[in-house]
């Protein structure tokens, strides 16, 4: 009995030491905290978190001025990931800031657009091309779907369109294919 217990404890101790050593030896030098937080945020730049973009929000989290549950586009997974990074208890997404929605892109009805460039100024990622008095259009790959251009358009010609699944980006439903 004593033999077994002592052997096992000794082994456990050895493994523990080994792991502890490995943890110290191979620890990755981290980026500054703000960068790490910013890397988790979805970069939609929508401002729903009450900060003028993801980076400012990341700075606010890092300095403890904001909670981690204010970013709706990041969804609950985003909150959980932040909690894990910061090693704190996770919280539920604060609905006051909005609810997560499927990803969309802005599409301009070019026939209606008057070329006022207000949307160009509002867009946080410069996804519009156009200049004053010519019709404006959105580069779909650049648009983050932040909705900020919607309210500024005087003629309401911007529409948010959901991104449809295609054969190319289809993700099989594993629950259905698992044969359980």
């Amino acid at each position: 009995m004593f033999d077994a217990t002592s052997t096992l404890s000794l082994l456990a101790l050895l493994f523990g030491l080994g792991l502890g050593y490995a943890a110290i030896r191979y620890r990755v030098e981290g980026n500054p905290l703000v960068d790490q937080i910013d890397a988790i945020l979805p970069q939609t730049q929508c401002g729903q978190c009450d900060f003028p973009g993801c980076r400012p929000y990341a700075e606010a989290i890092a300095s403890g001025e904001a909670e981690i549950n204010q970013c709706p586009p990041g969804g609950q997974e985003g909150v959980d990931a932040l909690a894990e990074l910061l090693n704190i208890e996770t919280m539920t997404l604060n609905e006051e800031h909005g609810e997560p929605e499927p990803k969309r892109v802005a599409v301009v009805d070019e026939d209606v657009c008057i070329g006022c460039t207000l949307c160009i100024q509002a867009c946080p990622v410069d996804a519009f091309v156009g200049s004053s008095k010519v019709m404006t259009t959105v580069i779909a790959q650049e648009c983050t779907g932040c909705d900020l251009c919607i309210p500024v358009c005087p003629v309401d010609c911007i529409e948010m369109v959901e991104i449809k699944p295609t054969v190319r980006n289809y993700i099989p439903d594993i629950a259905e294919l698992a044969h359980v």
Partner: peptide, 17 residues
């Protein structure tokens, strides 16, 4: 060297870890 008559169980369990 151990205190028990047979050793299979302990050997297997140790290696399982």
């Amino acid at each position: 060297f151990g205190g028990y008559p047979d050793a299979v169980a302990f050997a297997v369990l140790l290696m399982n870890i």
